[in-house]
């Protein structure tokens, strides 16, 4: 992409081969990224088989972003994102079974089958959705940050948005209030280069998306979002800033989605070569696997992890297919909290 070459304003955190990460931590991050990858591949397959309906937005290629951020954040912080949300839920510790069963519209799903791919929540894991309207999660995440501050907590709100969402007005309404009131909100822009089929340089005027908070005095950093350790380190810095009362922070994660915007995307707007090049040269999971190999993790151990993850996903699929559809009486429940 010509665009990134012209961006000089932002600071980009390059992958650092010498980044300090223990073998155990890297294994944990690798395992989670692999779980998301395998889960999403399976979701894609099940969509093709007609077991998942409606819209289904896969996270394949972007795994390092949410996994790196979750490695940086303390317990009790909140997470909110858009409709490309399966990876976020798994990274927050939600059960693969419950997520997959929601995709199949079954009662065992997180929303009892009433939310679907784009609308899942877990109060227990502080995951606040799953929002289907582009950028609506941005003021919501700002409100979660408001609640953290109101209660005098040091925890923060991790508010994810895509490069397409950054052109919505409510993003700037949120930036303004977050900066005005010094809210502990980290805005994580997952720039996967395309808002549906429109590349960022055809949609967004001006410089780096990381600089979109400049008018409000919100610091921003461009990060290699294909490198889980670079993400973790940038996340730590941003979180330290926000939780110490200095207000919001913007992280622009340079990432890439390998699949279409949704399952019905013909992907005519980019070349196969471009996708192939990203997969071969920048894949976050390959990157982590190579690091693990260098750190002395054997091929056999890596294969064992792979088998283990496949088993977890197979179990989730079995559950999602055997869990019954919601009872017809569920149609009229959960409209209002009955007091």
């Amino acid at each position: 992409m010509a665009r990134s070459a012209t961006r000089t304003a932002g600071r980009t955190t390059r992958p650092r081969r010498t980044a300090r990460v223990s073998r155990e931590e890297l294994l944990k991050l690798y395992r989670m990224m692999l779980l998301i990858r395998r889960f999403e591949e399976k979701a894609g397959q099940m969509y093709g088989m007609g077991l998942i309906g409606g819209f289904c937005h896969l996270y394949i290629g972007q795994e390092a972003v949410v996994v790196g951020m979750q490695a940086a954040v303390e317990e009790g912080s909140s997470v909110v994102t858009s409709y490309r949300d399966h990876g976020h839920m798994l990274a927050c510790g939600m059960e693969p079974r419950g997520v997959m069963a929601e995709l199949t519209g079954r009662v065992g799903g997180y929303s009892k089958g009433k939310g679907g791919s784009m609308h899942m929540f877990s109060r227990e894991k502080n995951f606040f959705g799953g929002h289907g309207i582009v950028a609506a999660q941005v003021p919501i995440g700002t409100g979660l940050a408001f609640a953290h501050k109101y209660r005098g907590e040091t925890s923060v709100s991790l508010t994810y948005l895509g490069d397409g969402a950054v052109n919505q007005g409510q993003v700037y309404e949120s930036f303004n209030m977050a900066a005005l009131w010094q809210l502990p909100c980290i805005y994580i822009i997952e720039n996967n280069k395309y808002g549906m089929g429109t590349s960022v340089n055809r949609a967004a005027a001006g410089g780096a998306l990381a600089e979109r908070g400049a008018a409000y005095g919100i610091p921003g950093t461009e990060v290699d979002g294909m490198d889980v350790i670079a993400v973790r380190d940038a996340g730590r810095k941003a979180i330290a800033h926000a939780s110490s009362g200095k207000g919001p922070y913007i992280l622009e994660m340079k990432t890439y989605r390998y699949r279409g915007h949704s399952m019905s995307d013909p992907a005519k707007y980019r070349t196969k070569d471009e996708v192939q090049r990203m997969r071969q040269e920048h894949d976050p999971i390959d990157n982590a696997r190579q690091r693990l190999a260098r750190a002395g993790v054997s091929d056999g151990d890596l294969k064992a992890i792979d088998r283990e993850i496949r088993a977890v996903v197979t179990d989730a699929v079995d559950f999602a297919q055997s869990s019954p559809e919601p009872d017809p009486a569920e149609l009229f429940t959960d409209i209002l909290v009955q007091d």
Partner: peptide
């Protein structure tokens, strides 16, 4: 638009 959404987030929180 912004403060209505912020209020919703605070209620979720």
């Amino acid at each position: 638009h912004g403060f209505a959404g912020l209020g919703v987030g605070a209620a979720f929180g």
